[in-house]
Structures are given as structure tokens and as C-alpha cells.
């Protein structure tokens, strides 16, 4: 409204003092524009955030994948007969669903009213994959990072140079490396070589699951585990 007053109305008033004829034309145009609601500010607002309405305007909310694949009805036979002096008015028709085999794509392909109603798919290593959010879920694993409560051996840079890391109850990761006494078979190695490749090798040789801090396998990964880790890893 302020925009209309300042940008449209005031120039019209000024122009009207100079030329009343032109002023009348401009006034008519302004009124016409106002009724269409087409103003530069409005246009820029719409273009700046096309998803403003789609996101719901809030951080939280629900979003659904696309609806059924639809095709518009052919207009033949449904278009209104033009009447002299009147423009034809289109009649809205409900879209028609064209059935096709249901696939995991967020659409109701088979037109049964349900989206992605597909059976679970068996995974090679056990468990099932399900169609959610228009795509297949990953195959489940028995844990995310490590088996809850399992323990791996780590090395400290002081005192005993031997430690243990326990996996969290939700299997999301390991706790800190807690100092522990090395087993008898590795005690001498720990005293002689301290935090070293030799001590890690001793850990492996004696059947423990060991953090590969010294990259004994030479793959550049010092966060992985080596040795007897079958009861620690998730797969």
C-alpha cells in the first residue's frame, strides 16, 4: 500500500498538474496494474524464495514425496462450447493415474492409493532393506561402530604403554584408552620398546584385537583394528 502511494499515486498527482489528459491515461493504467497485483516488489519476493511455502516456514515439519504419476485428461470432448462474446472457460478435471509396476521412487506407481508399498528385500548378510523416503534403506548391521561392551587393545605413551578401549553401550564408538597392565607375554616388550610397532605386533601375535596405531599393515589407516576382532567389529 505504501508502495502504491509513493511510487504510483504521487507521480500521477504531479503529472496531473502538467497534463490532465495524460494523467487520466496513467491513472487508468495504474489502477489496472493495482488490480492485477503485479508490482516489482511482489515479483522479487516471489522469485527470491520459491520454496518458502513448500518448507512450511519452520525448521520442523513433514514432507512427503511426490504423488501419483498423473496425466491430464485430453481436452477433447470436455472443452466448453464457446459462446458468442464470451471466452471459453476451462473445466478442471481430476488427474488420471496411469498404472505401472510399483517401484521405490516416492510415487504411487500402481495407483492403489499407497506410495512405495513394496515388500522388504532380504540382504545377503541377514536383515532386510525397506523402501523409505523414495529409496531403499541400507542393509542392517548388528551395530554401528563396534559391538557394545567389546574391548580392543590400545597403546599409551607412558607408564605401562598398554591400554584397553571399551565400546559404548549403543555401539556408536569407543571410550578413551584406559591404562592397563600388559599381559605377561608382552610385558618385556612393553618395557623395552615402549609405545612401538613391536608392542603392537606382540598384541597381534597373542590373539588380541588391537588398534593399528602404528599402521602395521601399511595401508595408512591408523584408526582401524587388526587381529582377533570378530567379536568387536560390526560385520
Amino acid at each position: 500500500m505504501l508502495y502504491v502511494s509513493k511510487v504510483v499515486a504521487l507521480p500521477i498527482v504531479c503529472q496531473a498538474r502538467r497534463s490532465r489528459g495524460w494523467a487520466a491515461v496513467v491513472l487508468l493504467c495504474a489502477v489496472a496494474c493495482a488490480r492485477t497485483g503485479l508490482y516489482p516488489g511482489d515479483l522479487s519476493e516471489t522469485e527470491a524464495d520459491p520454496d518458502a511455502n513448500a518448507s512450511g516456514g519452520a525448521n520442523a515439519g513433514a514432507k512427503a514425496s511426490g504423488g501419483a504419476p498423473v496425466q491430464p485428461l485430453p481436452t477433447s470432448g470436455v472443452a466448453p462450447v464457446p459462446t458468442a462474446g464470451m471466452a471459453p472457460v476451462p473445466v478442471e478435471q481430476p488427474p488420471v493415474c496411469v498404472p505401472s509396476p510399483e517401484t521405490c521412487n516416492g510415487r504411487d506407481d500402481d495407483c492403489n492409493g499407497a506410495v512405495d508399498d513394496l515388500p522388504a528385500q532380504a540382504c545377503p548378510g541377514g536383515g532386510f532393506r525397506f523402501c523409505v523416503a523414495g529409496r531403499l534403506s541400507e542393509c542392517p548391521r548388528r551395530c554401528d561402530v563396534c559391538v557394545p561392551g567389546s574391548v580392543r587393545v590400545c597403546q599409551n605413551s607412558f607408564c605401562s604403554f598398554w591400554g584397553a578401549q571399551e565400546c559404548a553401550a549403543d555401539g556408536q564408538g569407543f571410550g578413551s584408552c584406559r591404562e592397563a597392565e600388559p599381559p605377561s607375554e608382552c610385558a618385556a616388550t612393553a618395557r623395552k620398546f615402549e609405545d612401538s610397532k613391536q608392542l603392537e605386533q606382540c598384541c597381534l601375535d597373542n590373539g588380541y584385537c588391537c588398534l593399528d596405531e602404528h599402521d602395521l599393515d601399511g595401508d595408512g589407516n591408523r584408526r582401524e583394528m587388526l587381529g582377533a576382532c570378530g567379536d568387536v567389529v560390526c560385520q
Binding site: 513433514a62 514432507k63 514425496s65 499407497a114 512405495d116 508399498d117 513394496l118 522388504a120 523409505v132 523416503a133
Partner: peptide
């Protein structure tokens, strides 16, 4: 298995 998995929150 049901549908409904297409609705994310």
C-alpha cells in the same frame, strides 16, 4: 510391510 515410508519428518 506398509506404505507410509515416503513421509519424512
Amino acid at each position: 510391510v506398509s506404505g507410509g515410508g515416503e513421509r519424512e519428518v
